[in-house]
Simulated assay, not measured.
Amino acid sequence: MSAPQEKLTEKEQVVLRCLSIGMSNKIIANTLHNSEGTIRNHVSQILAKLEVKDRTQAVIKAINQNLI
């Protein structure tokens, strides 16, 4: 199995960085010029790929694994 940072797309990495500074889906969507639905999809993919249950766990795991 590949390392988590290799599994995340560039866009997912950007969304993960936004999550790490506490941005809401709406703010991320506006910032990245995407719909909230698109951002929700990215967040869901991040959670699945990092094998965590929520945004907080994703950020903690990302920090611990030097992904962000």
Rank of each mutant, 00 (worst) to 15 (best):
L47S: 07
I46C: 07
S24Y: 00
I68G: 15
K53H: 09
D54H: 05
A3N: 13
K26E: 15
H42K: 02
I68D: 14
K11W: 10
H42S: 12
E10G: 12
T38N: 07
N64F: 06
V14T: 13
H33P: 01
L67H: 05
S2I: 11
C18S: 10
I63H: 04
N41C: 12
T9C: 09
S24V: 00
L47C: 09
S44L: 08
E51P: 00
S24T: 11
V43Y: 00
S20T: 02
I68P: 14
C18D: 10
L16V: 07
N25L: 03
I28S: 05
H42Q: 12
V43K: 03
V14R: 00
L8T: 07
N64W: 03
A48C: 09
Q45P: 01
G37V: 05
I63E: 10
S20D: 14
I27P: 02
K49H: 04
I39F: 02
V59D: 11
T56L: 13
H33E: 15
H42Y: 15
E10A: 14
S44H: 05
T31W: 01
A58M: 07
R40S: 15
R55V: 09
I60T: 06
T9L: 09
R40G: 10
S2T: 11
V14G: 06
N64R: 12
P4F: 01
M1I: 12
I68N: 11
I21V: 12
I39W: 00
L47T: 06
K26N: 12
A62L: 04
I68C: 14
V14P: 10
G22T: 02
Q45Y: 05
L8I: 11
E12Q: 12
T38E: 04
A58K: 01
C18A: 11
V15C: 14
K11S: 13
I27S: 12
P4E: 07
Q13E: 09
K7M: 10
K61D: 11
